[in-house]
Write a protein that binds this DNA or RNA. Structure first.
Lengths: 168, 168
DNA sequence: TTGAAGTTTCAAAAATAAATGAAAGTTATT
DNA sequence: AATAACTTTCATTTATTTTTGAAACTTCAA
C-alpha cells in the first residue's frame, strides 16, 4: 500500500471507531492525523487534509486541547498556530483515563450517592431493595474509579512495574 | 425523597449518562430499572414504567442480552417472558469489559496492524514516521487490551486479591 | 488606528441515530 | 388447525448530534 493510502485509511477508520468511543468523528480524525504527522500542522492543513470547515476544525481542536491530548505550538516568525499531539503513549493513556473518569464516572457516583441515601421512612421491600442495590453500586463504582486513579500512578513505582510485567 | 421519586431520578440520570458511554438512552434506562427492581419485570412493565414503545423495548432488551448483562426468565404458569439483570457486580464488570474490548479495542488493533505493516518501498521521512508511530500504537493498545483481559481473571488469584487490597 | 491574517462563535442546515407502531412472526393452548 | 397471547422486525418518523459558513472577534505590523 502507498503511504498516502495507508494514512488515509488510518485516519478514516480511526474516525469511525471514535464514534463508538463516544467521541465525534472529526475529533478522532484530527487526533489520528496529528498522531502520525511528522511535523506540527496548521488549522489550514487540517481543514485541507480532512475536507472540513473552519468552524468544525476550530471547535474540535479546542475540544482536543481541553482533553489535554494535543498542544498549540508557535513557530518563530509565523503568525499561524500549529498543533501537535501528545506522542508519549503512557501520557496519552493517563490523560484519556482522567478525562473519562471526570466525564463518565464522577457524575455516576454523584447520582448514586444521592439516590442511595435519599429514601427516607419507607419500609416496603421494594424501597429497601432499591437502597441496598444503589449503595452496593456506589461502593463498587467508587472502588473502580480509585483503581483507575491508582493505576495511573502505578507504573511509577516498583510494585506497579512488577505487576505490569506479570500481566505481560 | 420518596422511593418512587428516587427510583425515577436514578433511571433517568443513568439513561443520560449512558449516552456519554456510547450506549443509547433506553438501553441504559432499562438496565438501570432492572438493576433496582426487586422482581423480574415483563416487557409490558418496562414499556409502562419508561413510557416507550414495544419495538424500542424489544430491541434494547435484545441488545442487553447480547451484552450478557440481563437474562430472560420464565415463571411457571406464565406465558410472558420476564427479565432480570445480572446482580453480581464483579460479573457485570467482567461482561462490560469483555464487550467493550470486543467492540472498541479489537477493531482498533485490526486497523493498526494493517496500516503499520502495509507501507512498502517508500523511504520518505514522513512514511517512516507513519510506520513507526502506528507500530508503537499497535504495541501499546495490544498491551492495554491484554491487561484488561488479565484483570478480568485477576480477582480470582491470590496476587490479584493482594494487589486489589493495596489499591484499596 | 487601520487593515490584513488569523481564530472563534453560533444560528441554521445536514447527517446520523433512535423511537414508533403496525404488520409479520412465534408459540402454546384448546 | 384455529386462535389468542405474546415477540420481533423494519420502513417511516422523530430527536439528537454534528457540520457548515458567514459574521464577530483578536492580534499583530505598518
Amino acid at each position: 500500500m502507498e503511504f498516502k493510502e495507508a494514512k488515509n485509511k488510518f485516519v478514516q477508520t480511526w474516525g469511525a471507531l471514535g464514534s463508538q468511543w463516544g467521541i465525534n468523528k472529526t475529533m478522532a480524525q484530527i487526533h489520528a492525523l496529528l498522531m502520525v504527522a511528522a511535523e506540527p500542522l496548521s488549522m489550514e492543513d487540517i481543514m485541507e487534509e480532512l475536507q472540513i470547515s473552519r468552524g468544525n476544525a476550530s471547535m474540535n481542536l479546542r475540544a482536543l486541547m481541553d482533553w489535554g491530548i494535543i498542544y498549540k505550538e508557535y513557530k518563530p516568525g509565523e503568525r499561524r498556530e500549529f498543533f501537535t499531539s501528545e506522542k508519549d503513549l503512557d501520557e496519552l493513556a493517563v490523560k484519556i483515563a482522567q478525562e473519562r473518569s471526570k466525564r463518565e464516572i464522577k457524575p455516576a457516583l454523584k447520582v448514586l450517592k444521592e439516590v442511595s441515601s435519599s429514601v427516607k421512612g419507607e419500609t416496603s421491600a421494594e424501597a429497601k431493595h432499591f437502597t441496598d442495590q444503589t449503595t452496593k453500586l456506589y461502593d463498587f463504582v467508587l472502588k473502580a474509579d480509585n483503581m483507575l486513579e491508582k493505576s495511573i500512578e502505578f507504573k511509577d513505582n516498583w510494585l506497579g512495574r512488577l505487576v505490569m510485567k506479570i500481566m505481560k
